[in-house]
Amino acid sequence: MAEQLLLVEDDAEIARIIRDTLQQEGYTVTWATTGLEGWEDFQSAAYDLVLVDWMLPEMDGITLCQNIRWKSDVPIIMISARKDDEDKVEGLDIGADDYLAKPFSLVELKARVASQLRRWRRYNGQAQESEESVFANGLTADWQREQVFLKGEEVPLTIKEFELLKLLAHNPDRVFSKNELYQHVWQQPEIGDSHTVTVHIKSLREKLKDPMKTPHFIQTVWGKGYRFIGETH
């Protein structure tokens, strides 16, 4: 089966050249023209590699890259006209695996893609993410079946509550702002009302019987956001 690539690029001329080149190499390429469209595409299918332009409408490439990295270890190649070392470092710091500065040769593009896919194949062959997580204080989550249990009893979470818990639990001790949670879970570029996140976190805590003042799972970091502090078994 051909490897699945996601290309997120708003410049139609550049995107067509990249897409056609990679398709000639035998890859299947999905092309998105905005950051938000790319994020929606990524959530709806399985990809082996993502190419992301830095400057994108609706959701910029840095934010998109960050959202993808919170969800997956899939290889990400950042594409940008920015050539400063500081820009490259920023892209790599938020989770990109490689950085291609425009203009680049198609030979270099093909080599970088092939290199990252080799790494990805090795990674998948060596370590598969566990479908189930078991935490102290009676919490168990089956991420594949989207089921959560507390002391053996299933907890009836909504889709958004489950996605919030999954994001927080998969990135333990990382503080997420309300805006970051909103962008990732609600798939919107900007938070419309921070109260939306607050209400869902409150409901999630109540269902997990997790007191705000002495939490076992979700901790409020005042002035910053929330983080997951559950201890794995």
Rank of each mutant, 00 (worst) to 15 (best):
P172E: 03
W70H: 14
L7N: 00
S105K: 04
E129K: 15
A127W: 07
R174E: 11
F162H: 08
V113D: 00
Q24A: 15
L109C: 02
L204N: 03
V155F: 04
W120M: 06
A169L: 13
T140F: 00
V74I: 15
I62L: 15
R118I: 12
A169T: 14
R118P: 02
Q43M: 12
I68H: 09
D10R: 02
Y123A: 14
R82P: 05
T214L: 07
Q187H: 10
L164E: 09
H195L: 04
P57Q: 05
E132A: 07
K110M: 00
D87F: 07
S80Y: 08
M59F: 06
G225E: 00
R19T: 13
V50W: 02
W31R: 07
C65Q: 04
D93I: 06
Q24H: 13
D85A: 14
L64W: 11
D53G: 01
Y123T: 12
A81L: 08
T34E: 00
D60W: 00
G61W: 03
L5W: 10
E40R: 15
E161Q: 15
Q183D: 04
D41V: 10
Y182W: 13
A169C: 13
Y27H: 08
G35D: 09
Y47D: 00
W120T: 03
D173Y: 12
V185Q: 02
T34R: 03
L22V: 05
T214H: 09
Q66Y: 10
T21R: 14
K160M: 10
R112C: 09
F228V: 10
I77Y: 04
H200Q: 15
G223R: 10
L157P: 00
R112Y: 04
E131Y: 00
D173K: 09
E206V: 06
E40Y: 10
V199Y: 13
G225L: 01
V113Q: 00
D210C: 04
E58G: 02
D11N: 15
V199W: 08
I62Q: 06
Q66G: 11
D142N: 12
G38F: 06
D97V: 11
W39C: 06
A169Y: 12
K151M: 03
T158E: 14
R205F: 10
W186T: 02
R174Q: 12
E3Y: 09
T63V: 14
N124A: 02
E40H: 14
G26Y: 06
L100E: 03
I159L: 08
G223I: 09
R122H: 13
Q147L: 10
G152K: 07
D98P: 07
P75Q: 01
D84C: 08
D142K: 05
A96V: 03
Y99T: 04
P211A: 10
Q128Y: 01
E58N: 08
K209G: 02
G26W: 04
V134N: 03
D84W: 05
D84H: 11
N67L: 14
L109N: 00
D93E: 13
N137R: 08
A101N: 08
K151F: 08
E131V: 07
L56K: 05
M212L: 11
L7W: 01
Q4N: 15
S105E: 01
E129H: 08
H195G: 00
K71H: 12
W31Y: 02
L51W: 02
